[in-house]
Design a protein around this nucleic acid. Structure first.
Length: 451
RNA sequence: GGCCCCGUGGUGUAACGGUCAGCACGACAGGUUUUCAUCCUGUUAGCGCGGGUUCGACUCCCGCCGGGGCUACCA
């Protein structure tokens, strides 16, 4: 099997960005497809930017998405001595050298030599100098990208880049290359923003005599305004998506479709099917825009197709309620109507709480002449046995005809009487759910209020 | 400035160089329905621009325009 390494830079907020989630998903799908496992590495060579809590939150989000992962053969801490050893080796062979130039020096050097040429420093014996890697003046470094094919980067345009600070601590492009090699990572799937960094990592690998992993660079995700997806675009993290009531399976399905499609236009796919069909080589090169509307649609489909047991459990967890019989009954009638978990509660709230008092709704529905209709409805269901949808319909439906009104003229007032809202599950199901006595009580309360 | 990536309807995508450029979401218009949602039917709208190559270009080449990334002793 293949180990796949996911680039993973924890954000300072602890949120798992949707773009990061997609990267993780693609890594996971590709690893699964190849019968391997997903290896997670945190890409902070120093952990200044993110707290352990933030890292935990992101791992939680990954777990919630049900993307299982391994920590890899070596931990962050264990890498440190290996980094220094590699650094010493490079210095020894002359592939790297100490250089005391500051950013300012580099800039003036470039002014003199033209902007198309990378900076070349001069070796110094000073111990208090940063370490730079020697980059060839000619030739080019080729990145063999699984998605884009071979991409040539002219060596001359790269600086002799710094691989370790004056204090000996290593920098990202060096650390990550050594990590990949030492952890025997075979495939690196990451964001487009690293494409230009790849030649540097390749140079480090080459200087150290390591082979290179396979690379695949994903285009970044954008918001509806075309800019890089960010907080401003609403739900930009999987935590927010979870809170908004989306299902992990639906998110996996939708996110997988951002930059990738099937040959036969299949849209709705279970996760095993995604695993079976996904190939990193088939991912597209253009950047995609995250569109929550389509996610909603996919989520709705998943919600409606869920087995009722799983549905009740999922709703219960989202609402922080026990999956008792009442909730189960309520879910049964609400399942076909909700697109997200968040939409379930407004539909079934009336079963657990008194009707909402909304003067606007009342004024709109409880018009003149409503009282007699409701009185007739109460009479029709009094003593009705069994109190289930079909008999209720048989008892109530004829009333509209005898009063010579449209069905809605009768049903909407009943709906408002028992729920306080104009939207609810089917009126017969709703009455059955509430039970005969409570239904009658609520309708009578409405009648009293009308007179 | 330099290097690199990307460009099919509003959105996501499909199309061995040959199809009326397909599918899905959305939007709009109808239909079903007790509300909402679902569901059904129809409509809408696209190959960024300009040159080549070719009998023929969304597809190959060049230029331009537009978007993005890298260019740190950040990751």
């Amino acid at each position: 099997g293949k180990d796949l390494r996911v680039r993973f830079a924890p954000s300072p907020t602890g949120a798992l960005h949707i773009g990061g989630a997609r990267t993780a998903l693609y890594n996971w799908l590709e690893a699964r497809h190849e019968g391997g496992t997903l290896v997670l590495r945190i890409e902070d060579t120093d952990l200044e930017r993110s707290t352990p809590e933030n890292v935990e939150q992101i791992l939680d989000a990954l777990n919630w998405l049900e993307l299982d992962w391994d920590e890899g053969p070596l931990s962050q801490r264990e890498m440190a001595p290996i980094h220094s050893e590699a650094l010493a080796r490079l210095l020894e062979s002359g592939a790297a050298y100490r250089d005391s130039s500051t950013g300012k020096h580099v800039k003036t050097w470039k002014d003199k030599h033209g902007s198309g040429r990378g900076y070349r420093g001069s070796p110094t014996k000073e111990p208090g100098a940063a370490i730079r890697l020697r980059v060839p003046d000619d030739g080019e470094t080729i990145v063999e990208d699984l998605i884009r094919g071979p991409i040539a980067f002219p060596n001359a345009s790269y600086d002799d880049f710094v691989i370790a600070r004056a204090d000996g601590s290593v920098l990202y492009n060096f650390a990550v290359a050594v990590d990949d090699a030492e952890m025997k990572i075979t495939t690196v799937i990451r964001g487009d923003d690293h494409l230009s960094n790849t030649p540097k990592q390749l140079m480090v690998l080459k200087a150290l005599g390591y082979g290179a992993p396979r690379y695949a660079h994903l285009s970044l995700l954008h918001g509806p305004d075309g800019k890089k997806l960010s907080k401003r675009h609403g739900a930009a993290s999987v935590q927010e998506l979870r809170d908004a009531g989306y299902l992990p399976a639906a998110i996996r399905n939708y996110i997988s479709l951002l930059g990738w499609g099937t040959d036969d236009d299949t849209t709705l796919m279970s996760t095993p099917e995604l695993v079976k069909r996904f190939r990193i080589e088939d991912v597209g090169t253009a950047s995609a825009v995250f569109d929550e509307k389509k996610l909603r649609w996919i989520n709705g489909r998943f919600m409606r197709e869920m087995p009722i047991d799983a549905y009740v459990d999922t709703v219960a967890r989202h609402l922080h309620r026990d999956p008792d019989q009442r909730l189960r009954d309520a879910c049964t009638v609400a399942q076909e109507k909700a697109q997200t978990l968040e939409e379930v509660w407004p539909l079934i709230r009336f079963v657990f709480e008194p009707p909402i008092d909304d003067p606007k709704v009342w004024a709109k529905v409880m018009k003149d002449g409503t009282g007699p209709l409701l009185e007739a409805a109460v009479a029709a269901i009094s003593g009705l046995e069994p109190f289930t949808p079909d008999p209720i319909e048989a008892a109530i439906a004829p009333l509209a005809e005898s009063f010579n009104v449209k069905a809605g003229r009768l049903y909407q007032p009943i709906r408002v009487a028992i729920t306080g809202t104009t939207v609810s599950p089917g009126i017969f199901e709703s009455l059955a759910l509430l039970g005969r006595d409570e239904s009658i009580r609520r309708i009578n309360a409405a009648i009293t209020r009308l007179s």
